[in-house]
């Protein structure tokens, strides 16, 4: 990290307190192993970081946990990265845990997000239903991105759209989570949805 001389008593020379950038965030959702962390890593300027939140204190009272005493220290991991747009604006990318029972994490992370990208593996379409439902119900701008593992997808996009039951106004794209340009373009699709919605709100 930045090497800063360790402060001594009283007289330490500290540079003026830095003004932080405006933070904005996008959420990358989808089932386990679908490529969320890979996508974050492809676009992030830092290696994806992991943070953990304890499930116990947030999910207290959830029935499933009451009869599984071993779960009291369970944590959920969340990977994230960031991209400095300019010194005053920083984009964070959060990969949300995929399972339903971790739904609580989503509100926590998604609150205030510009939008979401739901990553889909066409071999396991049902893994992403929870994420699609979530963004629809929360009315958060989102797009669906089919991760083309090995450069191919196993269904055509119309079939995927039909299977996911997402409306026509939700963009559906094919992308490669390992490819920076591909992830960038998928995120741009999400941001365009967010922008046109904001413009619609402003005009209305």
């Amino acid at each position: 990290m930045v090497s800063v001389p360790s402060p001594t008593h009283g007289a330490h020379s500290v540079t003026a307190v830095e003004q932080p950038p405006l933070p904005v965030k996008l959420v990358i959702a989808g089932g386990f192993g679908v490529g969320k962390t890979t996508a974050v890593g492809s676009i992030s300027e830092i290696r994806p970081l992991t943070t953990e939140a304890a499930i116990t204190e947030v999910a207290a009272g959830v029935d499933d946990l009451t009869h599984t005493p071993g779960k009291t220290t369970t944590t959920v991991a969340m990977d994230f990265g960031c991209l400095t747009i300019d010194p005053t604006l920083k984009l964070y990318l959060f990969g949300t845990p995929g399972q339903d029972r971790f739904g609580f994490m989503w509100d926590d992370v998604v609150q205030g997000a510009l939008g979401g990208l739901v990553i889909v593996d066409t071999r396991r379409l049902d893994d992403c239903y929870a994420a699609v439902d979530y963004f629809e119900h929360k009315d958060i701008p989102f797009a669906v991105a089919v991760n083309a593992f090995d450069g191919e997808i196993h269904h055509n996009l119309d079939e995927v759209r039909w299977a996911l039951d997402v409306s026509e106004h939700v963009p559906l794209v094919v992308f490669d989570a390992r490819n920076t340009g591909s992830v960038r373009d998928a995120l741009l699709v999400v941001l365009e949805v967010a922008l046109s919605r904001a413009e619609g709100t402003a005009a209305g």
Binding site: V24, S44, L83, G181, R184, L191, E192, A194
Partner: peptide
Amino acid sequence: TQDISVLRRVIDGLRAVPDSRGTLR
């Protein structure tokens, strides 16, 4: 989240990301 100028800045900033950035992954 509703700030059009912020959204545009993010979009412009993201567009400037090159197709490949190599070493971080």
